[in-house]
Amino acid sequence: MLDVEGVSRSFGGVYAVQNVSLSVAEGEVRAIIGPNGAGKSTLFNLVGGHLTADSGTITYSGRPIDGASAHRRAHDGIATVFQGARIFRGMTARENVMVGAQPWTRHGFVAAALRLPRHRSEERAIREQAEHALERVGLADWADREAESLPLGQQRRLQVARALCSQPRLLLLDEPASGLRAGERTALAELIEDLRAGGLTMLLIEHDVRFVARLADRVTVLDLGQVIAEGTPQEVTSDKRVIKAYIGDEDEHARGH
């Protein structure tokens, strides 16, 4: 479903991602792991459409999407959950989720201003879909709260609900567990497992190896912008190069503190 072929991207002459290739099958949950600075977020931005590659091609559903803008990709069924709390301020949780319906709705300013029939019928469908998405992530009781007043864990789930409201075919998650407390992490993991059981294809960017171990079908390991290993969670966690990359990382951490 998603093919990344020899993609490179550099910033100021330094490669953030270098000649990375990977292929995600329909229905697969693929984790991308790696130590800090491995190029995970760059890869996420390349697939999401917030960055363009210097070279290489990204194919989605059999079509190259290199030139497509982020909103074009959203319309093609790629939904995104960002690392930070990218919820929309000044809107309720429900309204935040309703924004996610953009890709499969059409009506614009004129239809809205004049309350044309198209606006009415689409709004009804959006409302239903949003309600459904809120229930799925367990936020139905919080729907009319100000989104920014929710705790971080729920804001992350709210982003997932917004993504689900777009009826995505591919869900990109950028370190969804970062900054969450243990209970919130478990709840998020359960949510991702639930989505996986529903057959949703996911690309899960994550720093923590343990978090992806039971969620991912396959794991791609990045280090210094390159793929150093790929396989099942078990294969990858016993790979010498992976262990070295992570231990090296922790050494640097230790030195830094």
Partner: peptide, 27 residues
């Protein structure tokens, strides 16, 4: 009418984060 509609929510979303709005399909 516009504020409480598909384009209105898109506008309010892009006020917070153009990146996140764009990713949600807002032109």
């Amino acid at each position: 009418n516009i504020i409480a509609s598909r384009p209105g929510r898109g506008l309010r979303a892009l006020a917070t984060s153009e990146t996140a709005a764009e990713s949600s399909g807002v032109p």
